[in-house]
């Protein structure tokens, strides 16, 4: 009796295991079919949450304008245009572009050389740059007293050497400085480190805020906060966040485009393989006046054409 029971369990386990394996197998063949260029009419894009709204908006207008691929280019089949956009961070974008989960990875950071190598056979397309602006609450008197900070002063503030506004300038109130940063190791903090901190560690009392929107919100809500914010978010809230110049250079469009203002990161689309005809058409659309218009509309600085 006992033996039979064991055999029965083993048998059922085997059946269960085979069913699971069978499930995997059929999925795999399915994706292989999809990967064949003649059958896949969708473009999958994923990665940086900074780029996602831009790409999603462009994808919407692209799909609406053309509806089927043959309207984009007569050599393409009459199939509906489908573009998937999902977010998960720049690191995720890089990884997924390399392992082929997505056709394009959205990456909002300046790529290191070894990262560029991974896409030597593919493409790296810059759509624009996301400039970080040192921002304070508009009610903070520093906006009038000291609207221009040197790099050294910024390093002292963000590394926690200066903890009080009064230490920065005697005319400022005796209140502690609240330093707000993005997660250490993320794209924005890498940009800030490369341009300003140059390896000096960020204060261990700095608030790490999980998203750029929340960081801008923190500055708008709390008048003792200083932080780096995407230029887009500063432009969207001109009355509530005051930009601070760095070493006398204000973060204006001219200074950003001329390269004088240095705190920024590239907005990139990367792919492991050369883009096929459909993908290239979408890239062209992104780099057209319409696509770059969206980049500007959402507050980033479009790439010079």
């Amino acid at each position: 009796m006992v033996k039979r029971r064991i055999w029965l369990s083993v048998l059922l386990c085997c059946i269960l295991a085979f069913t699971m394996l069978a499930g995997c197998a059929s999925n795999e063949t399915g994706s292989e079919n999809n990967a064949a260029p003649t059958e896949d009419y969708s473009i999958k894009i994923g990665g940086s949450s900074t780029l996602a709204p831009i790409i999603a908006q462009c994808a919407d207008s692209f799909t609406e304008e053309f509806k089927t691929w043959d309207k984009v280019d007569t050599s393409l089949p009459e199939e509906p245009i489908v573009i998937f956009v999902s977010t998960g961070g720049s690191g995720f974008g890089l990884k997924s572009a390399v392992d082929g989960t997505f056709d394009f990875g959205m990456v909002s950071k300046n790529l290191k050389d070894e990262e560029k190598e991974q896409f030597a056979n593919g493409s790296i397309t810059q759509l624009g740059s996301d400039v970080l602006i040192i921002g304070v609450n508009s009610e903070n008197p520093v906006a009038q007293v000291k609207p221009d900070l040197t790099t050294e002063e910024l390093v002292s503030i963000f590394s926690g050497k200066i903890k009080n506004w009064q230490e920065l300038d005697p005319a400022l109130p005796d209140r502690s400085i609240v330093v707000a940063v993005r997660d250490l190791g993320g794209g924005a903090s890498e940009v800030f480190d490369a341009a300003v901190m140059k390896g000096t560690p960020i204060s261990d009392e700095a608030l790490q805020i999980p998203s750029m929107g929340a960081l801008a919100g923190k500055i708008m809500d709390n008048k003792d906060t200083i932080g780096y914010v995407s230029s887009g978010l500063v432009n969207q809230n001109p009355d509530k966040i005051t930009p601070i110049s760095v070493d006398g250079i204000a973060p204006t469009l001219e200074n950003i485009n001329s390269g004088a203002y240095k705190i920024g990161r590239a907005l990139l689309l990367v792919s492991k393989d050369k883009p096929d005809n459909m993908e290239q058409k979408f890239l062209d659309y992104l780099l057209s006046e319409k696509g770059l218009g969206v980049v500007e509309e959402l507050g980033y600085v479009p790439v010079a054409r």
Binding site: G88, G89, S90, G91, F92, D183, L184, G185, G186, G187, D204, E205, A206, L207, Q208, I209, P210
Partner: peptide
């Protein structure tokens, strides 16, 4: 989400799940 060792209940700190959620994406 500060990296300093919290000294009291009213300090800031970064619990383990927050650390993973904050940094894994990048």
């Amino acid at each position: 989400n500060t990296l300093r060792l919290p000294g009291s209940w009213f300090d800031k700190g970064e619990p383990l799940p927050a650390l993973i959620a904050l940094e894994l994406g990048s």
